[in-house]
Write a protein that binds this DNA or RNA. Structure first.
Lengths: 343, 343
DNA sequence: GCGATTAGCCAAATCGTTTTAAATTTGTTC
DNA sequence: GAACAAATTTAAAACGATTTGGCTAATCGC
């Protein structure tokens, strides 16, 4: 009896009050004004659960959070939260055990069926991602953060991983590097494949043969960065440069290089992808880290924005956004030892 | 007309079906069984918003997410999500601009008033935290992650920061270190004060004078770790050991030490606090990092558990949990150069 | 065998909104 | 000043569950 009571105090009907607050055109400007002011003064707020029941909207966007390794997650979500501030939309977090993507299907199924969310965001898809097909089949609104190659129409937001790695690799080649190792993300994910492609295309453009022994895939952890880098450095001839998928991987590489008595930015060049974290900055590393950069917080904010548009009725097939990636050169890249840089 | 329809198909009344599914005693075991089976078979699930409206419960726990620096956040939340899996409780994320705590009051106020959450978790409190007083006054359920010194009764879960730093510092003193610098967390927060105290108590126990020039406070970022460490290392005599509040800080310290041409684990000892992240492990650092350790993911899971108890009616004054912290010695700690270790 | 319990089930009220369809007031035109 | 249209406002019907209070039939004590 909350709206009822509030309306009574204003000498209006619940209907008019409800409409005034929701900005419907049928109510006079003067009344709307008064209602708005009194709502603030008397502290009236519609009961959110009643609103949700009657409108059939859940008032929340779902995100599935993997168990391991995803330090980017907080930044992305924080960006979402920022954009959603002021809207009456919450973020709902669902945990997953982080096994295969197939195992995630029941999770999405529950999430959708529970009616707790109006849309979900799918992260790190594969080229032929089951989750996308599944959600599309259900006709449930979703946005993919990343890309897939499926025919199924869907909204997505991604960064230009391929271009980023093409430029990073090309730059290293221009400096004179010939053996460039890559420590990429989890095998099978589209973003990893795109990075693979950018890397290979750059090599090919310059007529350098691709050597599979110089490429590794795995989670973005310092540990894998270290282990892969160590094993690459044992090769002979060893690589003179690394491209890596994350800041954590770069930390591991730095350590591996140092542990071999080599110096980053002199003996070994490194370029890594930087999602821009407040707590770990490429510029502060020693030597400062050259990086392909794109703010994942900004992506989170934009993702929330696009989901809102999707829910507002914009067609999924219209929502495709590809963000360019900056290449920022710092001290960790230099010509290889005893080699002249080429023009 | 969902429950109604489902009940009709079973030849039962909505009342009985609802009770059967919620496990009330007034319904016979046989009927309950049948209802449960048919619910699965026919795919009936109560509309969550209707349930929420009628029960008055929001079905969610709120967490306020600061904008900057909180890489621990994702792990904590992931732990919560893990525990909440299977319960019908969601996690709701609210962003904050991360200014003073006072500025957060309206945010908590909105969160509570909006009726979107049944309880909130308050992070990193101050000894006399306004948020705690505010929530208590409202009579709203909440759990504090960390501690405060307020008289206001409230539920809390914390780790023994004081003990952790006392042991870490004592260990360094036992190794023979006499000038031990501390890079602590944000000034004013209780966990920082507890660490200060543990550090100072250890010094005092051994009769070493406390030198305020050896202590710094700030966000847990690699940048501050680096800057503070650099400036400490410029002192003369310079410190021979560091204790630090986070892994990121430790990364900064390692870099600073190296940039001065010194060696961690030989010229300079380091002990940092490790919240246990899948992507950055103390054991893998070079040299491996001695650390005070406590899983923040486990804390998140337990926090969710305690909130559930709180909502289940357990008294807030009963819910106080203090977790011990391990001290794990690795390669980053050693006796100071040209000093004998003391017994 | 009878009144009192009790186990099992149900009809209807309720939660607090939005929205449909209808009623009222106001404004315009002749 | 009547007739009609347009602008406001309203009463009442959803939304889909839970829960109160009541009803029937089976069980029990004596």
């Amino acid at each position: 009896m909350k709206l009822k009571e509030f309306a009574r105090q204003l000498g209006l009907s619940p209907t008019t009050v409800s409409r005034a607050l929701s900005g419907y055109p049928e109510v006079s400007e003067k009344t709307r004004q008064r209602v708005a002011e009194e709502a603030v003064r008397l502290g009236y707020r519609p009961n959110i659960n009643a609103v949700r029941l009657v409108t059939g909207r859940a008032g929340a966007i779902g995100v599935v959070m993997g168990r391991s390794g995803e330090f980017q997650f907080a930044e992305f979500m924080s960006g979402m939260a920022e954009r959603l501030d002021g809207e009456d939309i919450d973020i709902l977090v669902s945990p997953t055990a982080d096994r295969g993507l197939t195992d995630e299907i029941p999770l999405y199924s529950r999430l959708v069926a529970s009616g707790r969310v109006d849309a979900v965001i799918v992260h790190s898809p594969e080229p032929n991602d089951e989750r996308i097909a599944f959600l599309r089949e259900l006709g449930f609104p979703f946005l993919v953060h990343g890309r897939s190659e499926t025919d199924v129409t869907h909204a997505w937001l991604d960064i230009d991983n391929e271009g980023a790695l093409r430029r990073a690799t090309a730059h290293l080649l221009d400096l004179g590097h010939r053996r460039i190792a890559m420590i990429n993300g989890r095998a099978g994910r589209t973003f990893s494949l795109h990075r693979d492609k950018g890397y290979r295309d750059a090599l090919e453009e310059r007529g350098i043969a691709f050597d599979p022994r110089l490429v590794a895939h795995g989670h973005f952890t310092d540990e894998l960065g270290f282990r892969f880098a160590r094993s690459f450095l044992e090769q002979s001839p060893r690589p003179t440069a690394f491209v890596a998928g994350s800041m954590m991987t770069a930390l591991g590489i730095y350590r591996a290089v140092r542990s071999r008595g080599l110096v980053v930015g002199k003996d070994i060049s490194v370029i890594a992808h930087d999602d821009v974290f407040p707590y770990l900055t490429a510029d502060n590393m020693v030597p400062s880290l050259s990086a392909t950069r794109s703010s994942i917080r900004a992506a989170g904010a934009r993702a929330a924005d696009l989901v809102l548009q999707l829910l507002g009725g914009r067609a999924a097939e219209e929502i495709h956004e590809l963000w360019p990636v900056e290449l920022i050169l710092r001290e960790s890249t230099a010509p290889p030892p005893q080699a002249e840089s080429r023009p």
